[in-house]
Design a protein around this nucleic acid. Sequence first.
DNA 1: TTTGTTCATATTGCATTCAAAATTCATTTC
DNA 2: GAAATGAATTTTGAATGCAATATGAACAAA
Lengths: 231, 231
Amino acid sequence: MLEAGQQLVDASQGETHIPRQNLHSEVLALLRTAIMEGRFKPKERLNERLLCERFGISRTPLREAFKVLAAEGLLTLLPNRGVVVTTLSIADFEATLSVMAHLETMIGEQAAINSDEQTITKIRAWHHQMFAHFLRQEMAPYFELNQKIHIGLAAATGNAVLVSLYASLNAKILRYRYQANLQPERWQAAVEEHEDILSALILRDAPRLGALLRQHLLNKGAAIKSSLEEG
Amino acid sequence: MLEAGQQLVDASQGETHIPRQNLHSEVLALLRTAIMEGRFKPKERLNERLLCERFGISRTPLREAFKVLAAEGLLTLLPNRGVVVTTLSIADFEATLSVMAHLETMIGEQAAINSDEQTITKIRAWHHQMFAHFLRQEMAPYFELNQKIHIGLAAATGNAVLVSLYASLNAKILRYRYQANLQPERWQAAVEEHEDILSALILRDAPRLGALLRQHLLNKGAAIKSSLEEG
DNA sequence: TTTGTTCATATTGCATTCAAAATTCATTTC
DNA sequence: GAAATGAATTTTGAATGCAATATGAACAAA
C-alpha cells in the first residue's frame, strides 16, 4: 500500500492550495526514484498488473505515471507491448553528458555570484558530512549528500528552470551509476574535486567554479562509461 | 473529431514497428501545438468534458495527455479543480531565457563545426524562403520557417538531447509570441540578424555563430517581454 | 450590502469493464 | 526435429461507472 499523508504543506506561495497529492503523482515520484536508484534496471519491462498489486492501486494512475516518465525519457513505451526502462545508447549518453557539461558551467558561474552566505554555509556543512562518509567508505549516504550538494549548487543560481533541467538530465545518467561500480581511485579523485569546488565557491571564483564543476561531471561521466563498457 | 489515418508509416528504420499511434499521443501532439500556437491562452482553463466531445475521445487518453503536458510545464494541474494553461511569471520567463541563451551558444558553436553541406544548403534555402515571406509581410509562414531554421540548427549539432531540450524550452516561451504583436522594426532587425547567422554558418565561424544565436534569442526575448508588459 | 449556510450540480480522481492486440503454447505440417 | 499454424491466455488501450470533491446558486442572518 501507498503511504498517504507524507506530503507536507508548502506554504511558501501565498495563494497556493493545500497540496493534497493525488495517487498519480505519488506513484510517479515512487517510480522515478526506483528507476533512478537502479531498482528497475535498463531494458527491464514493467508489468502493469504486478505493479498495481504491489502499490494497491488501479491501472489508471499507474498508466498516467508511465506516460509522464516516458516523456521524461526514463521509460520507453512500446505500443501495445508495455513499457520498459529506457536504455541510453552510447550516443545518447554522450549527448546528455555534453549538454550537462554546459549546464554545469552555467551553474558554477552563476552559483559563485548569486549564492547567499547561508547557502554557502549549508553546502559547506554537507561537504564535510559527505567527507565523513567517504572516510568510512559509506557509499549510499555519500551519494545522497553528493546529490544534495549538486542540486544545492544549481538552486543557488536562483534559476528554477536550470534546477529542474539539471535534475532531469541528471536522473537519466545517474541511474547508470548504480550499475557502474565506483572504483576506489575514482572515488578518491571525486572527493578531491569536491574540495576544490567548495573552495572556489567560498572564494566566489565564478570562472573557476564553472570549470571545476564541468570537469567534475566529465570525469564522473567517463568513469561511468568505462565501467559500463567493461560490465 | 480526430482524423484517423493521417499518420504516415515511417519506414526509415528497418526493424521498427508500424507506428500505429495511440490516441493519447495524438491528443498530446494536438494539444501541445494548440498551446504553442496560442489557441489556448495562458490562464485558460481546459474543460475535460468539452475537449472529449470536441475530439471524440474518452477522458482517459485526454487525461494522460494532460499529465504529460503538465510535466512539460505547458499545463498546470490544480488538484480536483482541473487544468489551466501555465502562466510564466516574469522570473520564470527570464530564467528560461537565460538557460536558452546558453543552449543557443552551444548550438551555434557546434552547428558551425558539425553541419554537413546538405544541411547548410537546406538551411540556406529555408532562409531565402523565409526572407520572401518577410518581404510580403506574411507572418504565419515566416514564423514557421523561422522555427524550421532554429530547430534545424539545433539538429545540425548532431546532439539529440540538445534538440529536444531546446524544443521544449522554446515551446514554453514561443507561445507568448503569438500574444505579443511583433513590432515592424523588430521584425526588420530579426531578419538582419538571420542574414548574419546564415553567413556565419556558411563560413563555419563557430564562436561567431554561437554569439549571434545567443544575441538573437535575447533580442527576441526582450521584444516579447516588453510587448507583454505593455499589453 | 455583506457574510454565512445549505443544497443541487458539475467536475475530478480512481476503479472497473470491454474490446483489440500481442503473446504463449499446443498441434500440425514438412 | 524445425518451422508453421491457430486457438487459448495475457496484456494493453480506451470507455464507462462511481464515489469524493469543488463550484455555485438560493436563501438566511447580521
